[in-house]
Design a protein around this nucleic acid. Structure first.
Length: 803
RNA sequence: GCGGAUGUGGCGGAAUUGGCAGACGCGCCAGACUUAGGAUCUGGUGCCCCCGGCGUGCAGGUUCAAGUCCUGUCAUCCGCACCA
């Protein structure tokens, strides 16, 4: 027997799998399908970090097991390759981003191959490939044609030092990620996608899919649905303002109103305002505040009262002041609120600062002069006319009914979700396939002209005024209008990185189709994705965006399902050995290349799955890694005690069947650590026994194969197994052989363990009791005492309660 | 502030419905083999005042029985952050 030479074994089997096309999924198969998905990586210059293999190995285990169970498995991979780091690197080093991206992809590919994942490499996709982004552009055009993509002036992040527009991701703690310069808001025309149109469906359809509950919760919170009412206030000038509230019940307690600094009402009332200068000054001060300052100063309320105009509370008919304050957001509701200081913390703070009246309309809290009482579930209405005496929960609909009847307001649902800012003033992204024509406005390219290829440029620094680098590609920009044939200009903004990743999983089903993003047959067969594992950090970005795009594609008949992913799970982070997040600056980064070089891919994979609970963050441990290597080496060395016999021996049969059951079930629940622990236990038992038959070892390495595929494949060959182990049959267990004939039960007195006994497995309560009472130890301890009660739990314990 | 977690030996972590707390691995201790050991093998390893007690962040409660259920409280991490 040779030594455990993982280097030789691993490259040998990787080559064999490639040659045999062992992991290629089949389109047009009549087998049941399984579509397992992991997030395709952004090919960064740093190469793979240890977080990638955690997710990839987990899904690889599931995919390998499914394959052995007879499924037609699609486990694909690709590259989410547009994005800022490549572009920034390109600017700094004067290399084209395409060059650096190709180099990074080659490195990532080498690393992923070295880890032995059972990806179907024949379906590899790359978001920067024109054959791919042709369809990203195609989807954009469909969105545009249906009014879901529109251009609007929006504030963007502007670095005052680099003189350049920044994506949100580039603004860290309110300053420019690259230079640390101050970031302010600058208005610029931007492409937007109407994700808000799908808000309700994005919430509702969560009920039908199998996502981790915390993922659903996070998406629901992000979408932020709230039910309330819009209420119309008449002003003393005869004008009107509409406010949004979820607490219509408190209208009797509204003692002032507030509008946001950007609210159009200010413009409208301009001539009537006695303190217009003061108001204007406040507006411009608010506009100048950076996002950072606004959140920094969140606690301290500021504002200005509009002089010369008041609002009339529609139920009390009292005149109440109108304030302008930046604690009210123009982007939510109507940009105006009615303030009820007695029952809203923010209004209370504002009222205290400006010395405004606080009127209690819900009784049951503490003194509202001391703090706001905001509980919706308790409390009774007071000082509220026809609502007085009602509990809050009834008063809310009662008030809305009244407002609707009187024509003073109406029911209204609002969402926190905003439309998606889809423009980036950047080079390294998909060009937006729209031209702007003076006569025809925005015109989409005809589909026959796709892909609109990103022009090759030597200079891709962003423009002076926050324009995209593409603004310098004059030959490319100037074109003719597809509609009228006149002179027109191309859109110079590109799409964000989220564009290509919003539909990539669909492309895997039919990766080389040049007629459609994928054929109908392929989509019908493969979608939805059965199981998608990825990081929590994408929950309100990629995961939400791609659900939106998928629903849109469903609406226009491109995909057959409402939801893209049937099941979504998430893995915890791997921390540095010191328990901190891995980062270059902390110097605690573990490089997969080094690990594989030292202990091999199989030990690396095993440790990544063993180091802790899959869904939780856990620190890396070099010693722990060694432990997994030792385990594999011991498995390898079982050859030393091999008995040439294809049957399973009587004394290992039960353990083997129990292990099959445990490993299979634990894999499904992503309890990889306990599955591996069970295999370690089995191996320890074999070692203790001193021998293992060929038959037993074959079953055992089949179980281990999804975790450590190379070594088990080599052993399979040594044992004379037929074909590839990776394509062999997953073992089944006999439930009858997973239960012991005899079990140890404990005998307790008053809940404390006093004795143990081996009893037949099926023994009933009275049988157990009899055995317990016969025990010498128990006799002794219960002597002269009063037995009050005996609790017997078959298969577990007997508890004798004495006094 | 809101939302979501998490808290168990020296360490990473186990523990379906409440039913032997500490599986498995690391580390540590002892022994074996060795010229040698950061190799390998064997045995041991929660704590203590050790014939008996005590132990799952802390304080209570329910129960024959609580890591698990209930009430309160503290700590740490993550996400959102003036959303009316």
């Amino acid at each position: 027997m040779g030594e455990y030479n993982f280097k030789f074994i691993e490259s040998k089997w990787q080559k064999k799998w490639d040659e045999a096309k062992a992991f290629e999924a089949v389109n047009g198969s009549d087998k049941p399908k399984f579509f397992g998905l992991v997030e395709f990586p952004y090919p960064s210059g740093q190469g793979l970090h240890v977080g990638h293999p955690r997710s990839h190995t987990a899904m690889d285990i599931i995919a390998r097991k499914r394959r052995m169970q007879g499924y037609n498995v699609l486990y694909p991979i690709g590259w989410d390759a547009f994005g800022l780091p490549a572009e920034n690197y390109a600017i700094k080093n004067n290399v084209h981003p395409a060059v650096i991206t190709a180099k990074n992809i080659a490195n990532f590919k080498r690393q992923l191959k070295m880890l032995g994942f059972s990806f179907d490499w024949s379906r590899e996709v790359n978001t920067t490939d024109p054959d791919y982004y042709k369809w990203t552009q195609w989807i954009f055009i469909q969105l545009f044609k249906r009014g879901l993509a529109y251009k609007q002036e929006m504030p963007i992040n502007w670095c005052t030092s680099c003189n350049v527009g920044l994506a949100n991701e580039e603004v860290v703690n309110g300053v420019c990620e690259r230079c640390g310069g101050e970031v302010i808001q600058k208005r610029q025309s931007q492409w937007m996608l109407k994700i808000t149109e799908y808000a309700q469906r994005l919430v509702d359809d969560l009920d039908d899919i199998d996502f981790l509950e915390k993922i659903k919760t996070q998406q629901r919170n992000w979408i932020g649905r709230s039910e309330g009412a819009e209420v119309r206030f008449t002003l003393t000038t005869g004008d009107e303002m509409t406010v949004y509230t979820t607490r219509a019940d408190t209208l009797f307690g509204a003692t002032y109103t507030v509008i946001s600094p950007e609210h159009p009402l200010i413009e409208k009332l301009a001539d009537k305002l006695e303190n217009l200068d003061e108001v204007k000054a406040y507006q411009s001060a608010a506009a100048k505040k950076s996002e950072f300052e606004r959140t920094e100063l969140a606690k301290e309320k500021t504002g200005v009262m509009l002089k010369g105009v008041k609002a009339i509370n529609p139920v009390t008919n009292t005149e109440i002041p109108i304030f302008v304050s930046d604690y009210v957001l123009v982007t939510y509701g109507t940009g105006a609120i009615m303030a009820v200081p007695a029952h809203d913390t923010r209004d209370w703070e504002f009222a205290k600062k400006f010395d405004l009246p606080i009127i209690e309309v819900v009784a049951g809290g503490k003194d509202v002069q001391q703090e706001a009482y905001t509980d919706v579930y308790k409390g009774t209405m007071i000082n509220s006319g026809f609502l007085t005496g009602m509990p809050v929960k009834e008063a809310i609909p009662a008030m809305i009914d009244y407002l609707e009847k009187e024509g003073l307001g109406k029911r209204k649902v609002n969402y926190k979700l905003r439309d998606w800012v889809f423009s980036r003033q950047r080079y390294w992204g998909e060009p937006i396939p729209i031209v702007s024509c003076e006569k025809c406005g925005f015109v989409p390219l005809p589909e026959s002209e796709l892909p609109l290829v990103l022009p090759d440029m030597a200079e891709f620094k962003p423009g002076e005024n926050g324009e995209s680098p593409l603004a310098n590609a004059t030959d490319w920009i100037n074109t003719t209008c597809p509609c009228c044939g006149g002179a027109a200009k191309r859109e110079t903004d590109t799409m964000p990185q989220w564009a290509g990743s919003s539909w990539y999983f669909l492309r895997y089903t039919d990766a080389h189709n040049d007629k459609a993003l994928a054929s109908k047959e392929a989509l019908d067969y493969w979608t939805p994705v059965d199981w998608y594992n990825g990081g929590m950090e994408h929950t309100t970005l990629h995961l939400l965006y791609s659900r939106f795009w998928h629903k849109f594609l469903y609406d226009i008949g491109v995909v057959p399902t409402k939801e893209p992913y049937q099941k979504r799970t998430s893995h915890g982070m791997i921390l540095g050995e010191n328990g901190e997040k891995m980062s270059k600056s902390r110097g605690n980064v573990v490089n997969p290349d080094d690990v594989v070089n030292e202990v091999g891919a199989d030990a690396f994979r095993t440790y990544e799955m063993f180091l802790g609970a899959f869904d939780q963050s856990t620190p890396w441990s070099q010693q722990g890694l060694k432990g997994c290597y030792r385990f594999l080496e011991k498995v390898w060395n079982l050859q030393n005690i091999l008995v040439d016999d294809d049957s399973v021996s009587a004394d290992l049969e039960k353990s083997l069947h129990k292990t099959i059951k445990k490993v299979g079930e634990d894999f499904e629940r992503m309890k990889f650590n306990t599955a591996i622990a069970a295999m370690m236990s089995f191996m320890n038992e074999v070692t203790k026994k001193g021998s293992i038959t060929k038959g037993e070892l074959k079953v055992f390495i089949t179980l281990l194969n999804p975790v450590a595929p190379h070594m088990t494949e080599e052993l399979w060959e040594i044992l004379g197994g037929k074909g590839l182990l990776s394509l062999a049959k997953w073992p089944e267990y006999d439930p009858a052989k997973t239960v012991d004939d005899e079990v140890e039960i404990v005998v307790q007195i008053n809940g404390k363990i006093r004795d143990k006994a081996m009893v037949p497995a099926g023994l009933d309560r009275s049988g157990l009791e009899e055995i317990a009472m016969r025990s010498e130890k128990i006799k002794e301890l219960t002597e002269g005492k009063n037995i009050i009660k005996v609790i017997a739990v078959p298969g577990r314990l007997i508890n004798i309660v004495v006094k």
